[in-house]
Nucleic acid binder design. Sequence first.
DNA 1: ACCTGAACACCGTTCAAGT
DNA 2: ACCTGAACACCGTTCAAGT
Lengths: 258, 258
Amino acid sequence: MSEPLGTVPDEDATPDPDSPEGLGRAASPVTDAAVQRSREPLSRRLVLVNAVGLIDEEGLAALTMRRLGARLGVEAMALYRYVTGREDLLDGIVELLVDDLYGDPDVHMEADVWQEYLQRLAHGVRRLALAHPLVFPVVATRPPAAPWVRPPLRSLRWMESFLEQLQRSGFSDWAAVESYRAFSSFLLGHLLLEVSARGAEISPVEQNPPDTPRRTDLSSYPRLQALEPELSQDHSAEVFDESLEALLDRLEVTRRTR
Amino acid sequence: MSEPLGTVPDEDATPDPDSPEGLGRAASPVTDAAVQRSREPLSRRLVLVNAVGLIDEEGLAALTMRRLGARLGVEAMALYRYVTGREDLLDGIVELLVDDLYGDPDVHMEADVWQEYLQRLAHGVRRLALAHPLVFPVVATRPPAAPWVRPPLRSLRWMESFLEQLQRSGFSDWAAVESYRAFSSFLLGHLLLEVSARGAEISPVEQNPPDTPRRTDLSSYPRLQALEPELSQDHSAEVFDESLEALLDRLEVTRRTR
DNA sequence: ACCTGAACACCGTTCAAGT
DNA sequence: ACCTGAACACCGTTCAAGT
């Protein structure tokens, strides 16, 4: 399994009792200044990890420089030492998640069978998306660095590794590139769909009091009414696996076609 | 072909020379007050159409209540008669585009062959995405009204029509719902991929002067370097069509499986 | 009925100043 | 080296007031 993100690998001196994962939340806007002073030193990674945490907990709209600063026990202006601005902050979040995935030995590995490589990769990205459902849309929609970089595997490292693995497995130039795109499209489609359903449930900020069930009125949509049971069932994990198998089969055809 | 959106079907009195499509841009922040007074009356649709236009031209970040107001020759506060706030504005944009597609007889039609129905629908959504590449991510990622509503066909009308067409063609409850999801996932994956490439090219705001080509440095990525020609080639239209055919074949299997 | 002016809270960002 | 205070431009939104 992958590390929960946030554990800074080096230096774990002074075990901090009030930040269980090593961090996650760094400082509450507490009145005790002594607590604030004993914070882990700021770093770009710490800033980005807390930005992810803020989105996870309160949605993308809650990610402001000022609130992120408060979460870290610091004024907003201090963040400009680690990010050049809010845009860079968002780019940094994407980079952090994608690079963390790259560093995860359960996800990124050379395999004798290319199918295993893609299986691990696909499930790794899926775990990422489900762990951060409110962040994944950002990974999916931020404009990439180059036009041929495709979300969600939007790093040159990942592309290089992906293409190398496939070519080593007998994919031609054309087939490898085609597979990169098909794989990206597959992940994007399935995971954004899955994450969007969760987004509708939790729907940030819109924490309406439970006295408002506000069920959609289906009276003029007989089919929807009849099919609501099927529509509400969730098979996403199985469907993901089956579709992934189907994709791998198609890629094997692509591979043999050269 | 679908109407270019913005042409208000009723009332085309006083042909306005400076708004070729009937609207698109309504009023430039011009100093001539007389021109501003002769504006088309405000309406929710007009507000939404201009919001789309603003995103098309300058990106999502440029869509502020104040700038949208200025574009319409009005103060920002006037917009609150037609939208309850910025969130409702974004929801309205999505609804406008999706409903316009529903109203397009070239896209939404009953067909004797379900494959034709899905073909027209798929190409209609693709045209929408390519016509508004900076808006499509919003269509793709806004939280849906109900958890079982999936982007990009995120209206009850579309879902009802979709499911009805498939059931009329012999799909079981299960198969129809499964197909709705597979189709949604297909569109999302392919179109977001395609649109993200364009977003990287135009990249709103970032209109860097052409003296900064700033090509990505690939020196440490030999595969990327070698495959850059293939990576830069664009076959998206053909790939879309082929993948759509493959999907329809799979759905036919699903249909017969019951 | 429809729009505006004034006001408020909050935002991103810069920069000189503090330690 | 790292953070803050003050300041500025811009933002969403409310509301009483104008026509």
